[in-house]
Write a protein that binds this DNA or RNA. Structure first.
Lengths: 194, 194
DNA sequence: GCGACGATGTCAGCGACTGTCATAACCGTA
DNA sequence: TACGGTTATGACAGTCGCTGACATCGTCGC
């Protein structure tokens, strides 16, 4: 396929991860990444849209997975239930080892530009899930709220998992997070006026 | 204050908004903005951290407001209730006219980099609200979930408002969104296994 | 008036990202 | 085996966002 060695993209990703971890994201130039991978800067930008995207390539898979499982469990679980079920299913099948996720998250947490990209990816996932719900007859408002609320619970669960892996597998954090959400919002306190 | 004319920052912001609206965000260079404001590119970056920040300067005010009102209504409303109350209060006091918000949102919606920045700002608001709750004895998990869920409802409400202003004031969208969230998550459907 | 201080201008430079064209490897086909 | 088409890469130039360093202008207190 490539000109010389195979797996150009994988080599670029590995080189980027190494440098981001050691020198830091900002202090790493794309030229350095390319050089370490035995390629040129221009080639880097043919494989990744920008310097941040290296860390997020493959996230479409997660979105597809969530869309599929949400659609699959919608009839039985309803909007919010289907979204929760999808995230819990993904928690036990999609995510790599804690150690890897942790290393990746450390890089992201240390760099605002990367956090922005991560949030944007999650937001797109939310839009995709809302779309699934809408296609199944859920009203616009409810669909959006169910999807965004699912994202909210996921964010918290994932953050808790990488922060404190000794609490157990991601699936446990996920269940806890969704449960806490139900408990908190089930309280019959209509927001009072100020 | 300034060297020549006053209100340098306001002039820069206005110039940026005009150009972003007419030519588009990408097609506008910082040099053009500065020139239109009668200043230099370097001065632009003394007033705004980057090209995107022009659209988000002042968002600290919203965060402060939300933090204050969440703290104020916590005792009476509890975690989720206080967050909801804060957003509903902000909805009726903070946000400018629909027309202005709409124009601004059009710019943001048309440019992924700006969406990223907006999501990042909202995320920081969520962190601040979670911090408020934690300081009042709410457990980490519950605090984070309550705050993030509030952000979720707010996002939906705001999007609905700027999309369909004929549905009424932002406060109405906000109440509807939080109500929908309570209804959706109150359904006694524990997420079933897949 | 004079000196401290804050805001602006000027200049040089790095690095992310893009467009364009040339070139080297791969693939099927004759 | 030679050939032509396709695809990935290299090479080069250029734009633009953004920063550091230093000079300069205006304002304010004395």
């Amino acid at each position: 396929m490539g000109r010389w060695e195979p797996n150009a993209q994988a080599r670029l990703r590995q080189a980027a991860l190494d440098l981001y971890s050691s020198r830091g994201f900002e202090a790493t130039t794309v030229a350095e990444i390319a050089e370490r991978a035995g390629l040129t800067e221009r080639t880097f930008f043919r494989h990744f849209a920008d310097k941040r995207e290296v860390l997020f390539a493959g996230s479409e898979r997660l979105q597809e997975l969530l869309v599929e499982t949400t659609a699959a469990s919608f009839d039985a679980a309803g909007p919010a239930g289907a979204v929760a079920a999808a995230f819990e299913h993904a928690a036990s099948t999609y995510f790599p080892e804690v150690a890897f996720s942790r290393q990746r998250q450390d890089i992201i947490d240390a760099n605002p530009p990367l956090q922005e990209r991560e949030l944007a990816k999650l937001h797109r996932v939310g839009e995709a899930l809302a779309q699934v719900l809408r296609e199944r007859g859920v009203a616009d408002l409810s669909a959006a709220v169910a999807a965004e609320s699912g994202i909210a619970a996921f964010k918290v669960a994932f953050a808790g998992w990488v922060t404190d892996p000794r609490d157990g597998a991601l699936i446990n954090h996920m269940r806890e997070s969704f449960r806490a959400q139900r408990v908190l919002l089930a309280e019959p306190t209509p927001a009072p006026q100020i």
